[in-house]
Amino acid sequence: MKYACLLGRTIREAFVKEYGTCSMSIYALLTQFGDRYLSALFTTYKLTAAAFALAVVIGVAVTVMRIAPVKPLRMAAEFYVQVFRNIPGAALLIFLVYALPYLDIVLSYYVCVLTAITLIPSAFCSEYLMAGMNTIDPGQIEAARSLGMTFAQLVRNVVLPQAVRSSVLQMTNLLVATMLTTALASQVPLNPTDLTGIVSYINTHAVGGVTAFLISAVLYCVTAVVIGQVGSLIDRKVRVLR
């Protein structure tokens, strides 16, 4: 974290020394585009939060289907996961934006972006939950049964809590990954734009250049590091010792 800031400053100083004329000072940039930056940051956060929340809901539902003793459901859920964990984000977004209208389905840009950045993490969410469940020793399920727990009770008391606890780190990574995926929003005209879109916006409207890039980069990076730290803090608290 400390190093990241330090490094950011060093890179910037190096650039300013070499190409001082090319980029605006942070001060000038922020007076001109400060409000836009704030709303860009807000857009990125909002997209991240919404997509992550939706992805977890869908991911849980898909996981339930994947472990259901109903074969067609399992197969459908497996298909869903394989499609969305393997499709490139850009391909999915382009499909939603440009191809769906040919099926008489026209979604707003915002909905397209939100859909793309929800579907992909939802597949990974399900993968992480499955991996989390596989850390549970089958003996514990037998023990729960021998104590008279019904299926619902043993899922509630034994399987779910352990699956959730042991996937905290991966869920944290998923949240960061979701945030990075929101950069897809820069590929469609959105107003306000996101943290990546603003860099190209400023570059077409002024000579913001490197400074604009650095501000966005630092904001992304700081957010990612903070999420990571909070995640490992939570993980240390709830990790299941074995």
């Binding site: 950011g8 990075l180 950069a183 990546t196 570059n203 890039f213 966005s216 992304y220 990076c221």
Partner: peptide, 16 residues
């Protein structure tokens, strides 16, 4: 620091 930076910034931003 470099690791954190490359992991915390979207590919698109690097492309830009």
């Amino acid at each position: 620091a470099l690791i954190e930076i490359t992991r915390g910034i979207p590919t698109l931003l690097f492309i830009y």
